[in-house]
Design a protein around this nucleic acid. Structure first.
Length: 187
DNA sequence: ACCGCGATGCACT
DNA sequence: GTGCATCGCGGTG
C-alpha cells in the first residue's frame, strides 16, 4: 500500500511513479494510466499565488486527497505531494477501470469501458469522488492505493486544459494505453 | 478528424 | 464581471 512516505517527495518524482499504481475508492477504481504534476512555482497550479480556502489542502501534509470543482460541474482529484513547506500535487487524469465496473457504468451512464475514467472529471464521477473526500488521508478508507508490480513504459507530454505554462511536459501516461484522456505522443 | 458552445460553481479582480 | 487543471453534443471536413 502507498503511504505518506511515497508522497512526501518531489511531485516530479511521484507523478511518473504513480503510473501503473491502483486507485480504489470504496473498492471501486482501476489502474492509474495518466497524471499531471503541479508545483508551487507553477503558474498553472492552484497553489501559485498562495494559500486560499479552496487550495488549503495542497498546503497541508503529503498523502492526502485534494478535490476541487472544475467548471462548476465536475470534480477533480489530486494527490498531495512534497514536504510540509511546499504545495505540490498530482492530478489524476485517467484510469483503466478494473474494479466495480458495473457501478462505474451506472454512475457514468455509459457502457464503454474507455469512456468510464478517461478524464479527471469522468473518473471522479465513476468513483463518486466529491468535496467530501477533500483532505482525507490516502492510506485509509475509503481510499486504497496499491503499488504497481512492474515498471511501466511511460510517455510524457504537455498538460491539458491549461492556459499558462503550456510548454512544460509535466503530463505522464502509460505508453500505448487506450484508456488515456487523449493520445500522448513522446515529446 | 477538428471546432464551437452551453452547462454550471466559485475564487478572484 | 471574468476565467477556468471539463465534458458532451452537434456541426463541419
Amino acid at each position: 500500500m502507498l503511504t505518506r512516505d511515497f508522497f512526501a517527495r518531489s511531485v516530479h518524482e511521484v507523478a511518473p511513479d504513480l503510473i501503473g499504481a491502483t486507485l480504489l475508492v470504496d473498492e471501486i477504481g482501476g489502474t492509474i494510466v495518466e497524471v499531471e504534476a503541479y508545483d508551487q512555482e507553477d503558474p498553472a497550479s492552484h497553489a501559485y499565488g498562495g494559500r486560499t480556502a479552496r487550495n488549503a489542502t495542497m498546503f497541508g501534509p503529503a498523502g492526502h486527497a485534494y478535490v476541487y470543482r472544475s467548471y462548476g460541474i465536475h470534480w477533480c482529484l489530486n494527490l498531495v505531494c512534497g514536504g510540509d513547506d511546499d504545495a505540490e500535487a498530482v492530478l489524476i487524469r485517467a484510469l483503466e477501470p478494473s474494479a466495480g465496473i458495473e457501478a462505474q457504468r451506472a454512475r457514468r451512464g455509459v457502457d464503454e469501458p474507455r469512456k468510464l475514467c478517461s478524464g479527471p472529471g469522468k473518473l471522479c464521477q465513476a468513483l463518486a469522488i466529491t468535496r467530501e473526500h477533500d483532505g482525507l488521508a490516502l492510506d485509509q478508507p475509503p481510499f486504497l492505493l496499491e503499488e504497481r508490480l512492474e515498471i511501466p513504459k511511460i510517455v510524457t507530454g504537455p498538460r491539458i486544459g491549461i492556459t499558462r505554462a503550456t510548454e512544460l511536459s509535466w503530463r505522464y501516461g502509460l505508453m500505448g494505453s487506450p484508456f488515456l484522456s487523449r493520445v500522448l505522443r513522446p515529446a
